[in-house]
């Protein structure tokens, strides 16, 4: 039998394992008390006023977050609502959605038609020699 004797070490292990829960809790409490008494440990201890200060800071941050995440403006909400309504109307109608699909050729043609229409209108106004403003008293 020596200090490294397996029987002896097994005996000590059994003794350690057999310690009651109460003893282990009290040893843990003693250890914590000892660490709290250490001046170096106390330097890193959280002061008592930090809890309310932390709660206040968290509340302020939460308030800022809520304010920042609020709806931007009524106008943009209305515009978004309007587009949703238009989309719903389109879907509800019996027209082929393909009609509204983006077609570059159709767009170019419609632009040219629109341009010609404007030209006609402006020429008509020039020929008649009066503008809608002038006709008014």
């Amino acid at each position: 039998m020596n200090s490294k004797d397996p029987n002896l070490q097994h005996y000590w292990q059994q003794q350690r394992d057999a310690l009651s829960e109460d003893v282990l809790l009290r040893l843990r409490a003693a250890r914590i008390r000892a660490l709290e008494a250490n001046p170096q440990f106390q330097r890193f201890r959280v002061p008592g006023w930090s809890l309310p200060a932390g709660v206040l800071a968290a509340t302020v941050l939460l308030g800022l977050g809520v304010w920042w995440a609020r709806p931007v403006s009524d106008a943009s909400v209305r515009a978004a609502d309007q587009s949703v309504i238009e989309d719903a109307e389109l879907l509800a109608s019996n027209e082929d959605p393909g009609l509204y699909a983006e077609d570059p050729e159709f767009l170019a043609w419609s632009q040219s038609q629109l341009g010609q229409e404007r030209l006609k209108n402006s020429g008509r106004e020039t020929l008649s020699g009066d503008s809608p403003q002038k006709g008014k008293p």
């Binding site: 282990l24 008390r33 440990f41």
Partner: peptide, 29 residues
């Protein structure tokens, strides 16, 4: 745990052993 067992086997009393271990821990800390 070892410290407690040492103290208990030396003092033959669990309460005295716990006190001794706590005092030793406090002083070391």
């Amino acid at each position: 745990r070892n410290a407690y067992l040492t103290a208990r086997l030396s003092l033959q009393n669990s309460e005295d052993a716990l006190d001794a271990v706590q005092d030793a821990m406090l002083k070391l800390s």
